[in-house]
Design a protein around this nucleic acid. Structure first.
Lengths: 225, 225
DNA sequence: TAGATTGTTAATCGATTAACAATC
DNA sequence: TAGATTGTTAATCGATTAACAATC
């Protein structure tokens, strides 16, 4: 007696695809981040308990999140790191390559361009802009393929030609809203804001603002009490 | 008929103090971050709806979080920004000054040292370390009081003399665990990790690892679906 | 007054936790 | 086999949402 079940990849029997809830998608992203790092450290398998320590997500919750999509683990052993990375990528549909435009060629912009945090997950910084004309043309980023800083006037063309899906703002607070407005105008829907500015955008645009100070206040509270 | 209630500052009638739940403390920190920024932008009052847009926390949740500690708002008007900042600081007990040691004088370290994100919340970078002897003595940070990069050998003394409560790691992945171990040894309980390393620390030490790539994967999922 | 927004309740939903049989 | 860890259930807790009277 076989019961009719939802396919395991999240698609429904009618061919439509069920969206993950906000919480599940956020947690799966974090598991993927830790797994990628664990793989770099040479780990072959990882237990839900270990994942819990690094993600601060309850281990039962992790097992349940994963078991909703299939039986990925081995009892007594844990999860195979490689195969779990593949499974989560499939669930999140983020196996592809996605292009980023970076704004601001100051210390922070240089730090981001030189890092490989984004590259490991298929994000590639393909253009760096700065409104300081003295910086235009300057090569940024170490490694084999440094990028030359481009003029802000090229923005519209670059977004289209390079299929930019994410804009990363490493600009001063006063410049952030202007860049955000331009990105919105040219159709970019995801903005990563490393400035402190509170950005105003239409409802179909996602803004993620990095707030290390808020994270620190939170950690400090539990230290002080 | 007056009923006996818990005092509004979170202390109990027996003098002990009730700890906020993890969720409440995290959300209050984010409200504070947005309020601080709103104040800089010259806003006098802010509604729970506006706070919700910037924090991505439900507006009813915000009103309830706040009303648990007192009636801070004015119906039809919203919350006074200045006074709410003061109230939340009191609740989080983070009105004081706290000292940070920064590790790594590369692009990221320079970006952090030059920024005022931490300063606005009472955190002060009081020492910068780098193991590269060529960098020792180099002045870092703009503004009136740049700091000279210190030798890593001074770490133990600086942690004690300067009362360091937070260590911020802006070092390469391979160096992160070593610095974390030393910080733990000298008694620092809060570590902010901007490297990708998965840090091993004792249970009484809090590690916050910044994962912009995971945040991006999450945003991308909802863009792609 | 009229419009706006808080403070609060009630219903629903999702996360957390403990526990444990299944099984590697 | 013995030890470990998954997959899963059930109970509890906290977050979300809608709704609305109170009131500025």
């Amino acid at each position: 007696m076989t019961s009719i079940k939802e396919p395991l990849d999240g698609s429904r029997l009618d061919g439509s695809v069920e969206r993950l809830s906000l919480g599940v998608a956020a947690r799966l992203s974090r598991y993927l981040q830790v797994l990628t790092q664990a793989k770099k450290m040479g780990k072959d398998t990882i237990s839900s308990q270990e994942l819990a320590e690094y993600t601060h997500v309850n281990s039962t919750q992790i097992r349940r999140d994963l078991s909703g999509f299939g039986k990925f683990g081995k009892r007594g052993v844990g999860y195979n790191v490689d195969s779990l990375i593949g499974q989560i990528r499939k669930i999140l549909r983020t196996s592809g390559q996605h292009n980023i435009a970076l704004f601001g060629a100051g210390y922070l912009g240089k730090a981001i361009a030189s890092s490989d945090i984004f590259a490991e997950h298929g994000f590639r910084v393909v253009a760096i802009f700065d409104t300081d004309v003295a910086k235009v043309g300057e090569p940024i980023g170490d490694g084999s393929a440094p990028l030359a800083v481009r003029s802000y006037d090229d923005l519209a063309r670059v977004v289209e030609d390079e299929e930019i899906v994410v804009g990363v703002l490493a600009v001063p607070e006063r410049a952030a809203q202007g860049v955000a407005d331009d990105l919105v105008e040219y159709g970019v829907k995801i903005i990563f804001n490393y400035s402190e500015a509170l950005l105003q955008v239409p409802p179909d645009v996602t803004v993620h603002t990095s707030s290390p100070a808020a994270d620190l206040l939170y950690a400090l509270y539990f230290y002080l009490t």
